[in-house]
């Protein structure tokens, strides 16, 4: 198998994304800069080890932090499957006696309307400071299966691999407190980043997108670092 080392550089910041939601995001590089094209076909799997920070971020109302991998199925990215962990206000803060309240999730969107999104989640999530393996793959029967350390959380069969691409994200809605995962002393880490396309394994650690909650390019509170291995990246909120 031929291994191609992607050397995506940091490409700066754009500001058009936030129209639908006040989210602050940082995306790790993906195939074709996350844009599918007519020639794209057969992104069959994405894999990443994700290490949670030693202290989970504080989230407030309508805020959250998460890390996940994703495969999309159309140009407008309104069809996709994701798997990862999250600590969001919507669910985890409702788990008052569940300790950290973080949980694994598998989420699909099947059309881009407000009610076209479904999420499956575990009652538990990763411990702090621990690395887990997240994978999305086509099982050969048309299902995109999401797993955490090999345990299946969900699958979705309503889109085909043709034209799919992928992205990875850490986000924090409304930039509440320590909305981003990670701090300077304990960054959130992606490693072993790789995806599989047309029989080739690609490593793609380049951070190509950071935007703040209002669509700007302010990265004052957010830093990242990449080591020389090109399959590793870490993030931290500089306020913590």
């Amino acid at each position: 198998m031929r291994f191609k080392i992607s050397t995506l550089a940091v490409m700066g910041v754009l500001s058009l994304f936030v129209a639908q939601s006040a989210s602050a995001n940082a995306f790790v590089g993906g195939y074709d800069d996350c844009y599918p094209s007519a020639t794209d076909s057969g992104v069959t799997s994405i894999f990443a080890n994700i290490k949670t920070p030693s202290t989970y971020p504080v989230v407030g109302s309508n805020s959250g932090s998460s890390a996940w991998v994703m495969i999309t199925g159309n140009d407008s990215h309104t069809i996709y499957a994701q798997v990862g962990w999250e600590k969001s206000y919507g669910i985890s803060s409702k788990q008052n006696n569940a300790g950290d309240g973080v949980h694994y999730f598998y989420e699909i969107n099947y059309g881009g309307s407000a009610d076209n999104d479904i999420k499956v989640f575990n009652p538990v999530g990763p411990d702090q400071g621990v690395t887990h393996a997240y994978r999305l793959y086509n099982d050969g029967k048309g299902n995109f299966v999401g797993t955490e350390d090999g345990a299946q959380i969900g699958s979705y069969s309503a889109f085909k691999g043709t034209g799919v691409t992928f992205a990875e994200e850490l986000n924090g809605t409304n930039q509440w407190a320590a909305a981003y995962p990670g701090s300077a002393s304990s960054p959130a880490v992606f490693d072993s980043l790789r995806y599989f396309f047309n029989g080739t394994t690609y490593y793609s650690p380049g951070l190509f997108w950071v935007n703040n909650a209002y669509g700007g390019s302010d990265r004052t509170n957010y830093k990242y670092g990449v080591d020389g291995s090109s399959s590793y990246i870490k993030f931290w909120d500089t306020r913590y």
Partner: peptide, 17 residues
């Protein structure tokens, strides 16, 4: 009220659970 995770350049409505 729970928002879904939208990807880069998502062109749909914000998913609301």
């Amino acid at each position: 009220h729970e928002e879904g995770h939208v990807p880069l350049n998502y062109k749909g409505q914000t998913p609301i659970h």
